[in-house]
Amino acid sequence: MLTKRISNWMIAAAIILGVAALTPNNAQAQDTGIDFCVSCGMFSGECDEGGGGVHDICVWGEWGGVEWCISWGRQWCNPRIGFDDVGADGALLRERTFASSASQGLEAQDSPTEHVRDCRSRIVARAYSSDEAEDMRRRTESIVI
């Protein structure tokens, strides 16, 4: 009797363990979607001059019964090149170029470092209210020189 009870428990435990083994480790994450792509979190790039922040995009799905994950990550580093420029509206811009490394593909790691022009911040910047903006539009609807 005891043997049979132990045997039943063992069968039940085996079933549970089996199901657990066959279920992806990220079953719980799968419910929430994006966390399934753990490779994004593992993505790492090297910044020669410091910096951080990983911009991740993870896409996962199921195709023909096979689960797949594509992760893409980019490690932003401190600006390597900085220079000023003037936009066509006459505003002074500061453009910074970041070194970055990118990864594409299933759990892929870094590709060779490339330079990506990404961030441009305006030095002369003002936030206009809608009233101000409308006034600016009105003043330049017609221009007499």
């Binding site: 505003a91 101000e132 903006a133 409308e134 600016m136 539009r137």
Partner: peptide, 13 residues
């Protein structure tokens, strides 16, 4: 032309 207010506007005059 270009005008920047609360947005960027590409204008034809």
């Amino acid at each position: 032309a270009l005008r920047r207010t609360d947005r960027v506007e590409i204008l034809t005059y």
